[in-house]
Design a protein around this nucleic acid. Sequence first.
RNA 1: GCAGGGGUGGCAGAGCCUGGUCAAAUGCGCUAGGUUGAGGGCCUAGUCCCUUAGUGGGUGCGAGGGUUCAAAUCCCUUCCCCUGCACCA
Length: 935
Amino acid sequence: MPKLNLKAVAKRWQKVWKERRIFEADPVEGKPKFFITVPYPYVNAYLHIGHTYTDMRPEVFARYKRMRGFNVLFPFAFHATGTPIEAAAKLVLESDAKQVSIYKDMGFKDEEIAKFKDPKTIIKTFAKAAQKDLADFGLSVDWRRSFITTDLNPRYSKFIQWQFSKLQEAGYLTKGSHPVVWCSKDNMAVGDHARSEGEGEMPEEMTLIKFKADDVFFVCATSRPETVFGVTNLWINPELAYVEALVDGETWVVAEETVAKLEAQKHKVQVVETHMGIELLRKHAHNPVTNSAVPVFPALFVTAHTGTGVVMSVPAHAPADFAALEDYKKEDASANSITPVKVVATAGYGAVPAAEVFKRFGITSQSDPKLHEATAELYGKEFHTGILLPVTGKYQGRTVQLVKKELINDLVASRHAVVLYELMNPVVCRCRTRCHVKIVDNQWFLAYGKTDWKEKTHKALAQCKLYPEKVRAQFTHVIDWLKDWACARQLGMGTRLPVDKEWIIESLSDSTIYNAYYAIAHHVKNVPLSQVNNALFDYVFLGRGSLDGIKADHNLVMQMEQEFTYWYPVDFRNSGKDLVQNHLAFYLFNHTAVFPEKHWPAGIGVNGYVTLNQQKMSKSKGNVRFMRDLAKAWSPDVVRMTILANAEELDDVDWDDDAAASNSQKLLQWHQFAMDNYGKGDSVKTDVDAWFVSKLNECVRDATAAMDLTLFRTALQCGFFDVQRHFKWYARRRGKSWNVETVKLFIDVQTLLLAPFVPHVCEEIWMKVQKQTLASTEHWPLADENAIRPELDAIESGLAQTVDDVSTVKELSKISMPRNIMLVVADDWKSHLFSFVKNHVKSARGQDLVKTAMQDAVIREHGSDAVALIQRLVKDPGRIPAVVLHQEAAFQFLKDSIPFLKDTFGCEVVVVKERDSQEPKAKQALPGKPAIIIS
RNA sequence: GCAGGGGUGGCAGAGCCUGGUCAAAUGCGCUAGGUUGAGGGCCUAGUCCCUUAGUGGGUGCGAGGGUUCAAAUCCCUUCCCCUGCACCA
């Protein structure tokens, strides 16, 4: 028999589905609907194995829900908004070797790559490729509704503009300024992914405190402004260049390097003159809060990379200051008079905390690298638990943590300080330019920080089903944590902000409620662009206004409105766990802002990542695997099954080629089995048939429960691997001939349970076993609770246990070829006793139970034997079988099983009752555990 | 640091909510036997330690402590791992 070609099978059925349009979903009056979506992929490359997983979960769920009788809509679109595609096109234009090789590795020819200098070519190429890849995997998508974002799709842009007008009406679109990490060469904000160094660095707030010295200010940068009360001197690096500059009308002394930073942060700076640090020493500067005069000393640890190059010295609390002061005292005796001033009292530290850690860490000088660690420890402790001392005036008695914000506000209000955002570690843009912090003006925000919006979103979350539920805590936290989000940029592709055409809506912000667009995507194509406007969307999505104000074809408009109200809300939206704190949270927020409560999200699914050989997939490591390559290496069904059988909930999937090979084998075997056995067998029905049907129903029940929770690995475990295992036992028990009905049922049910996972093979089998329908549109099998009979299972496992025991004894007896195996069934009083203990073991224990048992006539009759047995059972209730059979039933069952046992052991098997046996070992017989005598 | 999720046998991974039936499902791997063209696949048995013509004992679910007649499961402490901490796909 030639091996089934799984890839050809996939092609064949995809064609059939397409021709019959079974996945094109339209509203059906009265039929329950289920709307499933997945975040559209960004089309700057081929879809990879990570997409495969995240897209396969909704796909399998869609097929399952369809089989459960729902009218399922599963649409798919493509995302091109943002900067990466544009940036890639620019690199192609510049013939950047790295970018070109990325495309070469994907198999593009030079002339094709050359065309990627137009970002639109990139978008079109990869959107098309993505759709093909997904279709090749048999996704049950309604492709009529597909679309793409950006001005390639002006209707979508209109939709996004409508969305933003709604957000503005609701008061959630605000304007303000904020600090960003900025590259002055690229003239844009530099996110983590666009950095060659400094991932995770973000602007941190420092306080610039002004110490007046004559007619200039020495401006110190600090992240611990509360210690200003303990300043003993200032530090200047003698070898560094400083400027005297007019800053916002005052004369400041800061490092030359600081000028650019100040300018980027909204300060007017005019340099008056330049000095080396050494020229600035020994002046006296006035502490603005204590009004005391402090000297300016030299220190080499001072840099201008962070802050201003002017540092206030707090030797009591800053180990670096303490170290520098100790160093300086050796050079200048006048410094000896300086004593540290303690500002913060912290449990476990004495008069000069910095000195203590200085000693403990064994620090030797101001250039000791251990200073960093010492500083971190002390700052941490003092920040969380340190109490401010009376020297701090109104702040005394409170912790640093509580006071800090107020203190900074006070300093700024009294014009003794200003705030500077600073990068604590270097950040370098991919273009190799060192980044700095810039305050961006007139920035547009979505006000996720607003309390009323948060409250609404919490409510939406409460109403939303989560798969798995355990992500709820994280969502709750994220909703509280989100601050206002800068939602527009001046670069990249996308839709212009309607209120301010200078700005383009950023990519995460234009993809929050587009699920609504799926409802109308195929209709709105037929509306002339000029007629696509806010009035239309108001009517379709919100039922606002009347048709009178709408120019578009009214029938079409009404159809769109009906589609939307039919399909919405989204019942299941699935995504990777990394999107919880941005996309999925935004999705919830925006729905509450735009739509009425009945249209808020009904279900969200979250899954883990895919790793390859336990390694996180990344382009730099070269371990990226594209969806299309997987399909080539295996077949769609095998990939689908393998990726879903490997993990569930938030666990990461590890793609495993060995598992794929094994699954491929299993599918072929299953197909072969169905071909060989469907409609064959006898008409004999035994308890073993009833047992198998019972197990089958159990499996169906458990698989169904798992499917409902999108626990697909569990569903495959119960619905495939377990079913197969049970049939193996059935086949063994029944021997050569099986019941025709049982086998048919097995094949039918098994095929349908597998259909959502491996639909192509299942269609093939379904057709070949003479079904007239498509497996994809069949009804999911439901468990018949009445067919589930635990007592049969208990008896079968008892038999399996007996087989086990016989093997063990056979081994121990060293009789390799026994001629006879005798099984002795325990006397009935033992069954009686077992049942008794089983019923009482939960309520009574130990002696009590023995006492109670002795009131029972049958048990009492067996005296000490009975007591010993009870005590054994109490100690280990696991000995009691799930079902305790009477002797006669157990005897009969084993007698019936003799052919099977003979077959298994290849010798004569006899079954006797305990009291009929002369063997001394016969007494060892217990209910469910016959005594075994091998000869 | 903050927030969320985890730590189970050679490996992967159930069990934990609702304590006893847990030496702990299932799969992989490994060992032996069978089938077969010595391969692959398939079938059977074994796979923590000790003991044994048997169903006995010990150790054990990151570490330590507690609650309980009884803990992988409940409580406390502690260590370790993963993910995220943003202006962006």
